[in-house]
């Protein structure tokens, strides 16, 4: 993993430069091209719109990056977002108020995160399969207690939280960016972050030198669960109603943006702030520019898939060169 630090490159290698920063270059090029294609793209309103759409995925992907860096996977985030808000809606129907609902949402997130953590650390199940099972289970619970995800109007406070602005920027955007920066600091500047990288590089070695592997993994899964609950909360705020489509297919989006941002699925490599952040923004940028140019909405997923494939291919070429 760290053999790159030994070789000191004095000569500027153009190919290597392109491969290392290929994803950022792709992003910059797309940004410029979008600006040329549509005059509305670079307006403040439109950029705010992209960020507004990205708030949910930003936070859950930041939590997911922690999980992937430790070499595990959390496929239950989308269903957990749905389930936490569904339980809150269930409580609302039985007389809970706004503050109780918020507490319930985050408590469910933390609790399910802990269950995931126990399955993966103490029962030693394969993280992908176990969380896939949880994904099915949580979606079932959520749809079952809310009559198949029927639309439900939520208290006005949710809508008010979404409309609240500081200096013209919605407070939800600011909060999610702050969370992102906080997580990046945790990852890079604290002992906990270093433990995450160590476990991802080699769990065996981490165990040998006496790191608290189980505690770290549990913490990572609980963090991911809370982030997923945040998605449920924010989606409820944005729309003002609950429906069964919250967090649909989000688990695959999380893995996609993390990997596009340079996080390795094998663990031990990756970062949140430039990497995952740009991955998320790129994903929303594709939809945004297609909408601005008035393309048929049926092309969206196909175009999205092609860009994702290109980004991942560049990432793979980089690793290929590094290995040989």
């Amino acid at each position: 993993m760290n053999d790159t630090t030994i070789t000191v490159r004095r000569k500027f290698d153009l190919t290597n430069f392109f491969l290392s920063y290929g994803f950022y270059i792709l992003f910059a090029v797309m940004f410029v091209v979008c600006g040329i294609i549509s005059p509305f793209f670079l307006t403040k309103d439109n950029l705010m719109q992209i960020m507004w759409g990205a708030t949910t995925l930003l936070v859950v992907a930041a939590g997911g990056t922690f999980v992937i860096i430790t070499g595990n996977m959390d496929m239950s985030v989308g269903s957990l977002a749905l389930c936490s808000s569904a339980i809150a809606v269930y409580a609302m129907n039985h007389g809970a108020e706004f503050s109780h609902m918020v507490i319930i949402i985050f408590a469910v997130g933390a609790a399910v995160g802990a269950v995931n953590g126990i399955l993966v650390t103490y029962c030693k199940l394969n993280s992908m399969l176990a969380t896939l099972g949880m994904m099915t289970l949580l979606r079932g619970i959520a749809l079952n207690i809310t009559n198949g995800g029927a639309q439900t109007t939520l208290p006005d406070e949710f809508r008010m939280a979404a409309d609240f602005k500081i200096g013209g920027i919605a407070v939800l955007i600011i909060v999610s960016l702050l969370i992102l920066i906080l997580f990046q600091c945790i990852l890079r500047k604290t002992r906990f972050g270093a433990y995450c990288y160590a476990i991802g590089c080699s769990e065996e070695s981490a165990k040998r030198i006496g790191l608290p592997i189980r505690k770290v993994k549990m913490a990572v899964y609980i963090l991911s669960g809370i982030c997923a609950a945040f998605v449920g909360f924010v989606t409820c705020c944005k729309v003002g109603t609950y429906s069964g489509t919250i967090g649909n297919e989000m688990e695959f989006d999380v893995v996609t943006v993390c990997v596009m941002g340079g996080t390795s699925l094998l663990g031990g490599r990756g970062n949140i702030f430039p990497g995952t952040f740009i991955g998320v923004v790129l994903l929303y940028l594709i939809n945004n520019i297609l909408a601005l140019t008035g393309a048929s909405p049926y092309i969206y997923p196909f175009a999205k898939g092609l860009v994702i494939f290109a980004a991942m291919y560049v990432d793979a070429l980089k690793n290929y060169r590094r290995r040989t």
Binding site: Y300, A303, I308, M312, A316
Partner: peptide, 18 residues
């Protein structure tokens, strides 16, 4: 290209669905 199967098939899944 020695890409990780999970990632490759994840993106082909999106492409094929699209």
């Amino acid at each position: 290209a020695r890409m990780i199967p999970f990632i490759v098939t994840l993106s082909t899944q999106i492409i094929a669905n699209g």
